[in-house]
Simulated scan of single mutants.
Amino acid sequence: MDKLTKEQRRKNMQANKSTGTKPELLLAKTLFSRGHRYRKNNRSVYGKPDLTFKKIKLAIFVDGEFWHGKDWELRKDDHKTNKEFWNNKIERNIQRDIVVNEELTKQGWTILKVWGKEIQKDLLNC
């Protein structure tokens, strides 16, 4: 049973962004200020990484802990409502991430995955 009405839930879900998240922007601005030039969400690269450096074939993904299943085996049962939907969705995201990593590796890309909270807590060590 959802505590929010359908309209409230719809507005909450619409507010979730796939690009331009705070951690992603924070990392991008820091890299730019240090003289690194990149492309954001480059569609010509498989998996559309958050930041790409084509010359050196570096793809950076900034992943949200919830959406990409950080510590998934421990947190699998944290959902209070609609457990089956969320478990399926997050497990599909994890599987898609694996496929994208394998394909980019085959193409010779170096992949960096950074959790959003790591950027917010300790940006310079990311």
Rank of each mutant, 00 (worst) to 15 (best):
M1V: 04
M1N: 04
T5E: 02
K6M: 05
E7A: 06
Q8A: 12
Q8I: 12
R9M: 00
R10Q: 04
K11S: 01
N12E: 11
M13S: 04
M13F: 03
Q14F: 00
A15D: 12
N16C: 06
N16H: 03
K17H: 12
T19C: 11
G20I: 13
G20W: 03
T21V: 12
K22A: 05
E24Y: 03
L25I: 09
L27N: 09
A28H: 08
A28P: 13
K29S: 00
K29I: 07
T30P: 13
T30A: 09
L31A: 10
F32G: 05
F32A: 01
S33I: 14
R34W: 06
G35W: 08
H36R: 10
Y38D: 00
K40W: 06
N41E: 07
V45A: 05
Y46R: 14
Y46G: 13
Y46S: 12
G47N: 11
K48M: 14
D50R: 04
D50P: 10
L51N: 01
L51Q: 02
T52H: 03
T52R: 06
F53G: 04
K54I: 09
K55C: 15
K55F: 15
K55N: 15
I56V: 11
I56N: 11
K57E: 12
K57F: 10
A59Q: 10
A59H: 06
G64M: 07
G64C: 06
F66R: 00
H68T: 08
H68P: 04
W72P: 00
E73V: 13
L74I: 03
R75D: 06
K76Q: 04
D78W: 01
H79G: 00
K80T: 00
T81M: 06
T81K: 02
N82R: 04
K89R: 04
K89C: 02
I90H: 00
R92I: 13
I94T: 10
Q95H: 13
R96G: 07
D97E: 07
D97N: 10
I98T: 09
I98C: 07
V99D: 12
V100H: 09
N101G: 01
E102V: 05
E103I: 13
K106I: 01
G108H: 07
W109Q: 14
W109K: 03
T110V: 14
I111N: 08
I111H: 06
L112Q: 15
K113Y: 13
V114H: 10
V114G: 11
G116I: 08
I119G: 14
Q120K: 12
Q120Y: 14
Q120R: 10
K121D: 15
D122V: 15
L124I: 14
N125F: 15
N125K: 15
C126Q: 15
